[in-house]
Design a protein around this nucleic acid. Structure first.
Lengths: 235, 235
DNA sequence: AAAATGTTTCGGCCAGGGCCGAAGCATCGC
DNA sequence: GCGATGCTTCGGCCCTGGCCGAAACATTTT
């Protein structure tokens, strides 16, 4: 089958340390410039340029030129899911050393964005709280928003914009996707619902990005809301 | 973060053409010997040996020695999902040439196993039929087995062995996972439910593996059952 | 126009790693 | 035991591909 070569090419693109670093940095869904990506990967801009060309040609990234900058982002949610699943396997594999945790790691483990949804301790705590309250049900493979969950999201002003699928008449339930967290080893809320919740938290000012990283900090307002709405006590 | 190196290592393992071929061959969940894998990858046994050592050390494969043979299989469902997601991206990327389809490809596209569930035209048709009959509901991210679906599976003698999760009292619904088919570009049924269905089809003799490949052939008995039970007319 | 900044192209260096032939172990069957 | 079969280790070949310095190109700013 011809697809084998394409498979190897895609995996190989993600398999270089420098390129992996760039992809990792793009995992929060934002677009970064070539120079920024060179810095995070620890290489010179001209080397990064070559890598970015490859990644774009390989369909992993899309670029958008804006003035003298070129903004690179993940080409699709499918790419993000692929990166997630690789991290998954890598996390399973790597539990060798107790993992030295730098200050950056601490923040990342506490709360971060994962493409379009929330991960880390906060992400898992949110998922746990929603499950405990009976607002969602989760298995390893899939999840569902219950009636009470739908009401909660509605009350919060989160529009889940019910997926209509092929037929416009779909009245079905709201499904969501679990995503195993590499730091917590427990599932958090991903997919359409997870993205909507994350967007809401950001727009309401409950959390905000730290510097230019994927890590997020919980604001005072956020702490209050997470406590009152979800019963989560922040550390 | 230290995990970046592990990530690159895992992706790199999958990124070599020879190793990719082996992983691809193992995607049906069965265990193969080193020599068999060397043959499918088009390399000599000694080269394959080196690759297999790396894949095992990297946590992608597990080996089981049996006499003078060594059976290699994917180390976990997480690895299978990772491979799936890479194929996904590769399929999106690769629609360049109208894809020359050899006789092998024809069989693969018609019906094949994908780790532990059914894919290809048959897999998609089954998923479509179940959705149409109202036995399952699917979105891009997740799926659910309805009451009528649960009854159907029960009638067929398929034990979904309801996932109990942490608490033993779980009465919740049966969730399942969709998996975008690389040949059909439409979702088929994966996860726990998909695996149970596939297992049932094999044990009932509705389908059987062609040679030693992932491709499966529908038996006469299978044709009758797919028609009567699911309303699927085989080509 | 000229200078500054972001990005790409070119050329050459170099190491890592895939490949195979030959030989060494292990296991099975007789 | 002996030879056959499956698998691994060793050694050496070779070539892909990542890296950087220098320079060209593009775009914005002064």
């Amino acid at each position: 089958m011809a697809s084998n070569a394409a498979f190897a090419e895609v995996a190989n693109l993600a398999g270089d340390p420098a390129r992996a670093g760039m992809l990792h940095a793009l995992m929060d869904g934002r677009a970064l410039t070539a120079t920024e990506l060179a810095r995070v990967a620890g290489i010179t801009p001209q080397t990064a340029s070559g890598h970015l060309l490859q990644l774009t040609a390989g369909g992993l990234l899309s670029v958008e030129k804006q003035g003298r900058h070129r903004y690179h982002r993940l080409a699709s949610p499918a790419v993000a899911r692929m990166l997630e699943s690789i991290m998954q396997v890598a996390a399973d594999t790597a539990p060798r050393k107790k993992t030295f945790v730098g200050p950056r790691d601490v923040a990342l483990r506490a709360a971060r964005t994962c493409y379009d949804h929330l991960a880390g301790h906060l992400g898992v705590a949110l998922a746990d709280a929603l499950v405990k309250r009976g607002d969602i049900e989760l298995t390893a493979d899939a999840g569902i928003v219950t009636k009470s969950g739908a009401a909660l999201f509605d009350r919060l002003g989160i529009d889940l914009g019910i997926d209509l699928g092929a037929s416009g008449k779909r009245k079905g339930r709201m499904l969501c996707r679990p995503c195993l967290d590499w730091s917590e080893r427990r599932p958090h809320l991903a997919g359409h619902v997870g993205a909507a919740l994350c967007k809401h938290c950001l727009s309401e000012g409950w959390i905000k990005h730290i510097d230019g990283t994927r890590a997020v900090a919980v604001t005072v307002k956020g702490q209050r809301n997470f406590r009152d709405v979800f019963g989560i006590a922040m550390v």
